[in-house]
Each structure stands twice: as C-alpha cells, then as structure tokens.
Amino acid sequence: MEQRDLPTELHKLLARIDLLAARMQRLQDENRSLRAQVEQLLSERAQLLSKQEQARSRVEAMISRLKSLEQHT
C-alpha cells in the first residue's frame, strides 16, 4: 500500500466504523423493544392464566351445584 492511499483507506475504514456503529445502535434499540414486548406478553399470559383458573373454578362450582340439585330432586 502506498503512502498516498492511506487517507483513502482511513476514510473507508471510518465510514465502515460509522456504519457498524449505526447498525449496532439499531440492533440495541430493536433488542430493547423486543425485551419489552416479551415482558408485556409474559404479563398478559399470566393474567390470562389467572382468568382461565378463575373460570375453571366457577365452572367446577356450577357443576357441583347442579349435581347437588340433581341428587335432591
């Protein structure tokens, strides 16, 4: 490599570093967003599981009451 090519190569290298830094920032932002999304989905899942358990308990209670009424008639 000749001495006069050094500034050109340096500029290319700096441009590539800037590109990589921008890409890294985008990936960090995307990662942060995805982590927040996962947290939200896990919270939503926990709420849905809780609601499902409550519904199951109510249905089981209704079935028990119906069986009890059926036995008394």
Rank of each mutant, 00 (worst) to 15 (best):
1 M>W: 04
1 M>Q: 11
2 E>G: 09
4 R>H: 14
4 R>E: 15
5 D>K: 12
5 D>E: 11
6 L>A: 01
6 L>E: 06
6 L>C: 04
7 P>V: 04
7 P>F: 07
7 P>H: 03
8 T>P: 00
8 T>Q: 15
8 T>R: 10
8 T>D: 09
9 E>H: 06
9 E>T: 00
9 E>V: 02
11 H>V: 06
11 H>F: 00
11 H>P: 01
12 K>W: 00
12 K>M: 04
13 L>M: 12
14 L>Y: 02
14 L>P: 00
16 R>A: 08
17 I>M: 00
18 D>W: 00
18 D>T: 02
18 D>Y: 00
19 L>N: 12
19 L>E: 07
19 L>S: 11
20 L>M: 07
21 A>Q: 12
22 A>S: 05
23 R>Q: 01
24 M>P: 02
26 R>Y: 03
27 L>W: 01
27 L>A: 12
27 L>I: 02
28 Q>T: 07
29 D>W: 02
29 D>R: 08
30 E>R: 11
31 N>R: 07
32 R>F: 11
33 S>W: 10
34 L>M: 13
34 L>I: 10
35 R>I: 08
35 R>W: 11
35 R>D: 14
38 V>G: 05
38 V>F: 07
38 V>I: 11
39 E>L: 09
40 Q>N: 04
40 Q>R: 15
40 Q>S: 08
41 L>G: 03
43 S>C: 05
43 S>V: 03
43 S>G: 13
43 S>Y: 03
44 E>N: 13
44 E>A: 14
45 R>H: 13
46 A>W: 05
46 A>K: 05
47 Q>G: 10
48 L>Y: 11
48 L>G: 09
48 L>I: 13
49 L>Q: 13
49 L>P: 03
49 L>K: 12
49 L>S: 13
50 S>P: 04
50 S>E: 03
51 K>V: 02
52 Q>D: 08
52 Q>T: 10
52 Q>P: 05
52 Q>Y: 15
53 E>I: 03
55 A>H: 12
55 A>M: 03
55 A>P: 01
56 R>L: 10
56 R>Q: 07
57 S>Q: 15
59 V>F: 07
59 V>I: 08
59 V>A: 08
60 E>V: 00
61 A>I: 00
61 A>R: 09
62 M>A: 04
62 M>V: 05
62 M>H: 14
63 I>E: 11
63 I>A: 13
64 S>C: 04
64 S>W: 05
65 R>F: 01
66 L>D: 01
67 K>I: 10
68 S>A: 12
69 L>E: 14
69 L>P: 09
69 L>Y: 11
69 L>M: 04
70 E>Q: 14
70 E>L: 06
71 Q>R: 07
